[in-house]
Amino acid sequence: MDIFLQLLISGILLGGVYVLVSIGLTLVFGVMKIVNFAHGDFLMLGMFGAFFLYQLFGLNPYLSLLIVTPALFILGLIIYKTIVGRTISRPHVVQIFSFIGLSVAFQNMALVLFSADFRSINHPVSTKVIHMGPIHISFPSFIAFIVAGIITILLFIFLYYTYTGKAIRAAAQDRFAATLMGVSIQKIYALTFGIGIGILGIAGSLMVPIYSVYPTVGEQFVLIAFVVVVLGGLGSLPGAVVGGLLIGLIETMSSYFIAPSMKQLVYFCVFILILILRPNGLFGKEGAAEEALE
């Protein structure tokens, strides 16, 4: 029983990390109907940012998120202005290959600048464990989970209770009508993309105490992020939360009860099964994917 409880808690905490990694992807898709294939590489940049702030200046990763997050938000705006914004009304292949090109460029830039070494920080917080009776809770995972919750709630409040947030939802629902209201679609998209990337700054900072950093670290997470987002329903925030927690739980449980090397097999089986039963994902709207392909 203790083991089960331990796995349940570890799985949910891992799910929190996955939610953080996925939520920007689903936001950008939901609003702009584009799939950011370079999502994982922005995460890599965020992790490297937090890593070097610790390595060079000894900055606690939880404080470095105050620097890395705005930096990634601004990077998101710049990438939107220079690349993404120019592909918005172009065919989908143009969008897809722009992002794949961006991904290759980021990875190789990181390879040249930082080398292919696996790096991790040696901060006492990395190995800190909270003991609750027989249950052990990894401190950095716990923090990541709490912050994931806070970020999700803040994002929800922003989208549903602020005027700018409502304009983002309006643009997501009907780009043409929103333009007629006087909404500048380019500004709203730039802001949305900036937020989607900025959240990866938070995620990167929180993940540096848990995971090693290397130029292709994004690939490992972007695959999970895609599973989470499609499972939850493309463009759905609650979907990303439930999907993230579900994948975290499945991964942890199957690692223990079956074999660690089988964990991906298990969550992909669950993924396929859910898509057979609910092709639009758990919280997906009918036609979200078709809309994206038009």
């Binding site: 939802r169 009907d174 043409f176």
Partner: peptide, 12 residues
């Protein structure tokens, strides 16, 4: 311009 087909934001 009030467009044809009303074009409301359906889930708002």
């Amino acid at each position: 311009h009030v467009p044809e087909g009303r074009r409301l934001f359906p889930t708002m």
